[in-house]
């Protein structure tokens, strides 16, 4: 491969564009941090420089509830706080449960659609595909009612119920990959007398690690970022997830002005898990997205 390494003007411009893109991607996050360490009372005057005049950690402290209400109010907040570690735990439970269970069950379903023969298969699959086209809000309203009728508002089961067992997308996505596995592999195992379950667990799943991981990561990111559903069904203190907590923290701003420094401190905290993910799983993450790009 002979790549052109001569520093032409074109290459310089191209690199400049690429670096600009990285700066645009990251600068807002820097600005968030810069605002988060600005004293709330000074924000109206001190909001332009690259660093605040009097950096402080008070906003993080008051968002985490480490200072009293009056002190928090003096620093520009309403005294509202984020029970960060509780909400983090809730987010982890919500995301973890859905990602693991849904991916697994949908793998089973996708396999059945790809390989097993049974009456009504195509009709059923057609129904799933049709469901793919339906915007989620259409089922969200009745699902909210259902969860309410079951008395599951503000519970974990209410939070995870609609997407724990399946999404049509996951089934559809995995079926595509199972279709691509050569039948001979399974035939050999079948002849050896292995049952469908054994084949699925021992042969098929290990062969589809890639797509499974891609799907799981995507599901995890979607679930982690989900806002409307958790806000509707589980806004209660005990089951509140991070995204809903941020939305509620915004609502609990002081009556006359949003508490920008506190909000940015809360936002910065909510980004920490994401950044950890990038630091530790950067390659996995990038690979798995590119994977869907290659198979798309």
């Amino acid at each position: 491969m002979s790549r052109n390494t001569r520093p032409s003007i074109g290459r310089v411009v191209a690199w400049a564009c690429l670096i600009a893109a990285v700066v645009i991607s990251l600068f807002p996050l820097y600005w968030m941090l810069r605002t988060a360490i600005t004293p709330g009372r000074e924000l109206a005057a001190d909001n332009a420089g690259l660093l605040p005049d009097n950096p402080t950690l008070i906003n993080f402290e008051r968002v985490l509830g480490l200072v009293g209400r009056e002190e928090a109010r003096a620093a520009g907040g309403s005294g509202a706080e984020l029970d960060f570690f509780l909400y983090l735990r809730n987010s982890v439970v919500y995301t973890g449960l859905i990602t693991v269970v849904q991916t697994l069950l949908c793998a089973m379903g996708g396999y059945a659609f790809a390989r097993l023969r049974f009456r009504g298969r195509d009709a059923l699959f057609g129904l799933f595909v049709a469901a793919l086209m339906v915007p989620p809000i259409f089922t969200l309203l009745p699902n909210f009612v259902l969860v309410k009728e079951l008395g599951w508002l503000n519970t974990y089961q209410g939070l995870v119920a609609p997407s724990l067992l399946m999404t049509p997308f996951a089934v559809f996505f995995l079926r595509q990959f199972f279709l691509g596995i050569p039948r001979e592999v399974e035939q050999a195992a079948l002849i050896d007398g292995a049952g469908r379950w054994t084949i699925f667990w021992r042969v098929v799943l290990p062969m589809t690690k890639g797509p499974l991981l891609t799907l799981a990561l995507t599901t995890a990111v979607w679930t982690w970022n989900d806002y409307l559903w958790p806000l509707l069904v589980a806004p209660g203190e005990e089951t509140r997830v991070l995204t809903a907590a941020l939305g509620i923290f915004l609502r609990q701003s002081p009556n006359t002005s949003p508490d920008w420094t506190g909000l940015m401190a809360g936002s910065a905290l909510s980004v920490v898990p994401v950044l950890l993910l990038v630091v530790f799983f950067g390659r996995r993450l990038v690979d798995s997205i590119q994977f869907s790009g290659m198979k798309g």
Binding site: S78, G79, L153, N154, L232, P235, R251, Q252, P254, P258
Partner: peptide
């Protein structure tokens, strides 16, 4: 339970709908 004026009523109706 404090919610700023701009959000107060929407929050209230949503929570009434939830029975909460």
């Amino acid at each position: 339970d404090q919610h700023a004026w701009d959000e107060y009523w929407q929050n209230l109706t949503t929570r009434m709908v939830s029975g909460d």
